[in-house]
Design a protein around this nucleic acid. Structure first.
Length: 278
DNA sequence: GCTCAGGCAGGCT
DNA sequence: AGCCTGCCTGAG
C-alpha cells in the first residue's frame, strides 16, 4: 500500500465508510478504526478514513479521481435519492438510519464471482472463500494483499482444484463456468454495463448458478443498475412485514429501488425488530 | 450431532 | 406458477 501519498476530499453530504462497507454489498474491506477501512479493489490496496467531514485515501490525487471517486459514487446526488425513496414513515426511518450508504460501483467480474459464491452461505464464510480465491490465484500487490484473480486465470483451473482450494462446495462448477464464459468472450461484462438492466439480466441468467437474486446483485453492485431490487431472505421478511405480500418495489421506489433496498437491508440487519414494525 | 445460512436447478403437482 | 429437495461447508 502506498503510505506516502494521501488525497483528501471535502465531503458535501452525509457519507459513512462503515455503513457503505458493512451494508452487505462488498466482501474485501476491513475496519481498522473508527470510520477507517483498508481494502482492495481494481488491483489497488488503499486505506480510507473520514474525519471532520473530509475523506482521506492513501493514493495519488489522479488515482483518487479516476478510481476511488467513481467507485464510492461520490458524484451522485444521494440527498435527492434519499428524498425520492422516502415514500412513507417506515422507509424514511430506514433511509435516515443508513443515510451514509453509497452503492459502490464495483468491478463486474469480482461482483459476479462474489455473489455467485454468496448463495446459501454466511457472510463470514463468503469472505473466507473470496480471501482464499484471491490469495491462491490473484496477483500479489503488497505483503499479504492480493488482487482479485482474472477470469482467464480461473478459467484455466479444474473444478476439483477449486473445490479443494476454496472449499466452496457445489459452487465450484458455477465459478468455473462463469470464468470460461468471460474468458472466451461468450459473456462480455463491459458490454453489459451499456445494456438495459433487462438485457443484461437475461445474459447473466444464462449462466449456471446465477438466478434471480444473484443476477440482481450483480446488476446493482457491479453494473450500476440502481433500479433493480435484489430480494434475499432478509429483504423478503422486511418488505412482507412492512408492506405485505403483493409489494412491487419498482412501482413503489421507481428508478432507485436498488438504493431503497440497501437502506431497508441495512436497517433490518442492524435492528431485527425493524421487521415487526407496522 | 443437528440446523441453517444473503440460492439455484430440476422435478414434481 | 408454485412447492419440494438436494447440494458443499462450517458456525452456532
Amino acid at each position: 500500500m502506498n503510505t506516502t501519498q494521501k488525497t483528501t476530499y471535502q465531503l458535501h453530504d452525509t457519507f459513512s465508510l462503515t455503513q457503505t462497507f458493512e451494508c452487505g454489498q462488498c466482501f474485501r474491506w476491513e475496519p481498522v478504526g473508527p470510520e477507517t477501512y483498508r481494502g482492495i479493489a481494481f488491483g489497488r490496496e488503499v486505506s480510507m478514513s473520514i474525519q471532520d467531514g473530509a475523506l482521506t485515501v492513501t493514493c495519488s490525487e489522479s488515482e483518487f479521481h479516476s478510481l476511488w471517486r467513481p467507485y464510492l459514487d461520490l458524484d451522485r446526488d444521494y440527498a435527492r435519492i434519499r428524498n425520492i425513496v422516502s415514500i412513507d414513515e417506515k422507509t424514511a426511518k430506514a433511509v435516515a438510519f443508513g443515510a451514509g450508504i453509497r452503492i459502490l460501483r464495483q468491478d463486474p467480474w469480482e461482483t459476479l464471482c462474489s455473489f455467485l459464491l454468496s448463495q446459501c452461505n454466511h457472510i463470514r464464510r463468503i469472505r473466507g472463500i473470496i480471501a482464499r480465491l484471491c490469495h491462491s490465484y490473484g496477483d500479489n500487490i503488497h505483503k499479504t494483499a492480493y488482487a482479485f484473480p482474472s477470469p482467464e486465470r480461473i478459467a484455466a483451473l479444474t473444478e476439483e482444484e477449486l473445490r479443494t482450494v476454496l472449499r466452496c462446495g457445489y459452487r465450484a462448477p458455477y465459478l468455473l463456468a462463469a470464468a470460461r464464459a468471460v474468458a472466451t468472450g461468450a459473456l462480455d461484462l463491459g458490454a453489459l454495463q451499456k445494456c438495459s438492466a433487462a438485457e443484461a439480466k437475461k445474459q447473466l441468467l444464462a449462466l449456471p448458478g446465477i438466478g434471480e437474486k444473484v443476477a440482481n446483485c450483480i446488476l446493482l453492485y457491479g453494473l450500476g443498475k440502481l433500479e433493480v431490487f435484489p430480494v434475499d431472505v432478509w429483504i423478503r421478511r422486511t418488505v412482507q412485514s412492512l408492506y405485505g405480500k403483493s409489494f412491487d418495489p419498482s412501482t413503489c421506489f421507481g428508478t432507485y429501488a436498488g438504493v431503497a433496498q440497501q437502506y431497508l437491508f441495512y436497517q433490518a440487519r442492524q435492528d431485527p425488530s425493524f421487521f415487526s414494525m407496522s
